[in-house]
Amino acid sequence: MSDFDVTAADSIDLARLRRFVAVAEELHFARAAKGLRISRQALSATVIELENELGTRVFVPGASPTQLTEDGAELLTHARALISAQEQAEREQKPEAPASLRVGFVPGVTVSKWARIWGDRLPDHPLEVVGVAQGEQEAALREGRIDLCFVRLPIDRTAMNAIPLWQETPVAVVQKDDALSLLETISPADLAEEHLQDGSDIDQAVDTLALVAAVGGATIVPQSIARLHHRRDLVYRPISDTEFTEIALAWPAGTDSELLEEFVGIVRGRSANSSRGVAAAEPERRAAAKPARKTTAKKPAAKQQPARQGKGRKPGARRGR
């Protein structure tokens, strides 16, 4: 029976123990060296040093394929525990990541302006921007996949907070050589004889426009969608007497946070100095920085001199008779 004391490995640096574990798990020096991105010779030298330091063989000499000795198997279990304990300690000491915010947007919405302002004002808090299918906009918010979302109304307002932002111009999309393409504005009456392709499913807009390009007719979509999926063989024209679609910023009720309020403020145009987080402390800072007004004694009012007769006459001038 071996008198090997496995606790002797406690004084060995983890880098060498990790190399031993790699060979012990692969049971192949060449593969282990490749995984560690070191040479096979360097790995073999590390194992030899380890065996000399521990005073025991951890691999069966000359065995093919590579095999662990009984002491080697005991060292493998102990080394794994040491490595696991060190990794756990590093995780506990690692500072928490700064709070971040996840913002979704449906097709046709561009959020780069607000993301840029966020980066300037809150560089220590990452902003994750996520594209969301319109059909998933409410589910993504309910399930917590995103914190806020630029949505296309309508949505269920009973469980969502929503701030309407802007309306989208509806456009009719027709083939480039269609007679309607000559008009600056198209009315519903102009479309009476056209075959209308259903454009209500925004997520399938690219297929709907391809269908118009292939077989003709027309479809009605928000202008932002027509621009997003622009094709050279199609044109779009504003359409009159048609309901506008509306974009809003929405988030689940009861999930307000400081970061969420900051982003809402940015979207609503609130300046950096007037944001909620800054505005609350601003009056106190101004009051503390403002010196107390000095009170000075008022000068006594000058005594009024009695008016002189003949005020305004030149010296020596005679009064006329």
Rank of each mutant, 00 (worst) to 15 (best):
A79D: 09
L260W: 06
V235G: 10
A248H: 07
L68N: 04
G216C: 05
Y236Q: 14
T255K: 15
E128G: 09
R157M: 10
G135T: 08
A288P: 02
G265A: 02
E284R: 12
D71G: 02
D198I: 01
I266V: 10
I155S: 00
E74F: 02
A179Q: 11
Q93I: 03
D120P: 02
L68I: 01
A210K: 12
L228K: 14
D3P: 03
A205E: 02
R80E: 14
R152N: 10
R157I: 13
E261K: 13
A89P: 04
V109Q: 00
G254R: 12
L165W: 01
L127Q: 02
L249Q: 07
K113A: 10
R232I: 06
A301C: 00
G108D: 10
G254T: 07
K294V: 12
K299I: 04
L209Y: 04
E51K: 12
R142T: 14
A292M: 03
D10Q: 11
R319A: 14
R232P: 10
V151Q: 01
A30I: 06
E282K: 13
E168T: 09
K311M: 07
V6H: 07
L75S: 05
I239D: 07
P95I: 09
F105H: 15
E136A: 14
K290V: 02
A115T: 01
A192G: 04
E262M: 11
Y236M: 11
A307Q: 10
E53T: 15
I163A: 12
Q304G: 08
L76Y: 07
D147A: 11
E243C: 10
G72M: 00
V171A: 11
L191G: 04
A9H: 08
